[in-house]
Amino acid sequence: MKVPPTLSTVLGNLFKKPATNPFPVSEPVPVPEGFRGKLVYDVDKCVGCRLCVMVCPAGVIEYVPEVRKVTFWLGRCVFCQQCVDVCPVNALRMSDEFLLATTDKYDDNLRWLKEDEVEELKRKLEEQKKAKEAAKKAAEKKE
């Protein structure tokens, strides 16, 4: 029988350590710098300019005109980072998080600015408006 040409390599490798990462037991392979993981949204910084809605190729972002913010559903995100690059106030950034598996595609982990948060923001805005009007009236009375 002919000796297979890979025999020496195979025998040599038999006595080496396995070069694998047993993931759930160990930590995952560390991410490099500039890794594009889960998108992080800072609601307070957002000015509602809608640039991210324009550049998103996947339809992740939906504009909420009542509060002038945007809402995200990362179930569709393709991690291209274009919204991060275009945001003029740096309200968006990419984190290192990449373990995003879930059983529900509308999972809370995959959403930014959910419905209840929008309602809360709306209430806050209305209160601010009322406070402003009250202050105005008070100033008029003083005069």
Binding site: G59, E62, V64, T71, W73, G75, Y106, R111, E115, V118
Partner: peptide, 11 residues
Amino acid sequence: KNAGHPYKIRK
């Protein structure tokens, strides 16, 4: 067809 955004679907 568009599968829709959860914010719009619930609203």
